[in-house]
């Protein structure tokens, strides 16, 4: 029943446990069904003698059906590779050395605050300066470092922040006449 997995990854990549694929298949299945359902609800304009193949929902329906079929295929494949087997099949992924989810979440939050909270509320150069300063100083902050070192890092972050804000404004808005948010 269990087939040998094909060489499905680039040579430098590590494979995923099959259960990840099963969850992914479930999400894509729901997305596909939602696409088909929403496309089905679209008007067909048959009352205006419009041909059925010009109906707005036709092409999204086809895409949705393909997504559903492919997600079922992915789900079945992950099951055949042991996604539902207890033990062995769903070994916890070895945490990759040096990778940090804390850094990821923090970076994501800072980017979100900048893009949604600061941009448009403040002049762009100021928003960019605050963001770059906050990002750099937070990630470079070492509580155990001497005060002088911490002050130096904060100063670098401030210079980088103001430099970025001013340079982006000058280069984009003045030199290349691009509108900034």
């Amino acid at each position: 029943m269990t087939e040998t997995p094909p060489p499905s990854l680039m040579p430098h990549e590590q494979p995923l446990p099959p259960r990840y694929d099963l969850w992914t298949a479930a999400v894509f299945f729901c997305v596909g069904v939602a696409i088909v359902w929403l496309a089905f609800l679209m008007p067909t304009y048959r009352d205006q003698q419009g041909p059925i193949y010009e109906a707005p929902g036709l092409v999204p329906t086809l895409h949705g059906i393909v997504v559903v079929v492919l997600s079922i295929w992915l789900g079945l494949r992950s099951v055949s590779r042991g996604a539902l087997r207890t033990g062995g099949a769903d070994e916890p992924r070895k945490s990759r050395e040096g990778y940090s989810n804390t850094r990821l979440v923090l970076a994501g939050l800072l980017c979100l605050v900048f893009a949604v909270g600061l941009v448009g509320q403040l002049p762009f150069w100021l928003a960019a300066a605050i963001f770059v300063f906050a990002f750099t100083s937070l990630f470079e902050w070492r509580a155990e470092a001497p005060i002088k070192e911490r002050a130096r890092r904060l100063a670098i972050a401030a210079v980088l922040g103001i430099g970025t804000g001013v340079a982006v404004t000058l280069v984009f808005q003045r030199a290349f006449l691009v509108r900034l948010p």
């Binding site: 970076a107 900048f114 963001f131 770059v132 990002f135 750099t136 990630f139 970025t164 982006v168 948010p181």
Partner: peptide
């Protein structure tokens, strides 16, 4: 830590 925030600012623009 110094490069990525600048990249994100450029992405936004």
């Amino acid at each position: 830590e110094r490069l990525m925030p600048i990249v994100f600012v450029l992405c936004t623009v």
